[in-house]
Nucleic acid binder design. Structure first.
Lengths: 137, 137, 137, 137
DNA sequence: GTGGTCTAGACCACT
DNA sequence: GTGGTCTAGACCACA
């Protein structure tokens, strides 16, 4: 279910956040479906509960999940996801920076465009597979 | 010449690296042209010399500049820039992740594509301006 | 009759307490009228009986209801409600803190005052409606 | 400088957040002025560094401070404070609930209004005193 | 059982 | 020195 890479530069709690977003957005976790509890997930991933907690808290702050103390953490409606300007402008800045880096490395516009196309296709395939996987289950 | 943003989440030495790359790749700094010394640049930017030092070392490692002991740091030939797979695969991973984040926020494929197109154009304009600016000088 | 919001940060038993107070103070529940039993209410609200139990205990402690063993829980006379200093001082502290937070967000005195006026009016309307509703019944 | 109440229902990191907001909004901490470091403040308050860190992080998220890794945490411009709807609607809800509680305790509208007036005046006086205190220093 | 807070350490990257 | 992340425990209130 989860793939953590301890060697990655992405911190553990960020990896948890992103993979959980993937599950929620792709619909594997339906609205109001319960997420694994903090302790449960921490055992599965052999990570400290605090690390999972940190991820869950950030997910709640961004509107992907909601929390009921004593009951657990649940997938929110996609309508509740906060599409705030700050997040978007930050992502476009990252996008800009990444594209710039690629041109520094000598990538032509065409090379970059085809790379983009490839990434797009891969993501789409991945999303479809996740959906099928959850439907089969 | 340099625009440092202390409030940015990008670390200072990364900002220096990226802006120096910009200057080299765009041709503002010609091949074999001398870069400002570590001390000089650290005074201009009012940052710690160690920070500039670190940026220069990384630029050298990536082949953007070369160092001559006792003389200073010089812009390398663009042929020397290491187009190493590691850097590229890391950048594509960042790209992939960024695009994913955008879809999480509800961006459709079209919206994302047009955002990309826009970023592309902006970067191209910026590059052209820098070129003109350095030609005028 | 009851509106529980699981997504709220107010705990469930607090929501029960507050809404029951509303019913008692507004007169929808007359003096000495029987409240639904713990089991009954827990089924209606689909919450844990312990949660309802806890709410009822707290309501009794504050003097809003009284319990007769074997018979159930009844609305107390409003004279019995404990207007204890502790509760009041805590509420004023909360009030103070909330108003402070608003000024932090840049609310001017006028903005805050008009917000207060609005909240006041809404609460009054709500109280009147509840009264009418119970008189019609 | 700081007054922590370990017995309070308000958690430690929330107390730190609120008191720091007070200092920033009242102008005791000027724009771009450095806050005490995480470790420093944790020693002063005899609290765990993680607790202070949690507070600082939340302050940054809300726009009251900005962080430069390796340098420290600095007071942000008041323009950067995020006046987002979520925060405001939550505060009005708290306001509503508090006023309701007061009416339950038998407070008349007049009593509540005068209480409000009093809170307002106290806050204003406090703000003026803090300002004078910091000007004297 | 659940999440929320807290302590007392540790290691890392950056300035 | 700075903040950022993480571990390994603990205690609390709530359901």
């Amino acid at each position: 279910m989860f793939q953590l890479d301890l060697k990655s530069r992405e911190s553990i709690y960020e990896q948890i956040i992103n993979q959980m977003k993937e599950l929620i957005v792709s619909g594997v976790l339906k609205e109001d479906e319960k997420l694994p509890s903090v302790r449960e997930l921490s055992k599965i991933l052999t990570v400290n509960p605090n690390t999972v907690q940190k991820a869950y808290r950030e997910l709640e702050r961004q509107g992907y999940v909601y929390t009921v103390a004593g009951l657990g953490c649940f997938a929110a409606s996609m309508k509740d996801v906060k599409r705030d300007e700050a997040a978007i402008s930050q992502l476009t800045e990252t996008l800009r920076s990444t594209l710039r880096q690629l041109t520094y490395l000598g990538f032509t516009k065409d090379e970059t465009a085809s790379l983009l196309e490839q990434v797009f296709r891969e993501e789409q395939l991945k999303a479809e597979e996740m959906k099928k996987g959850s439907e089969r289950a």
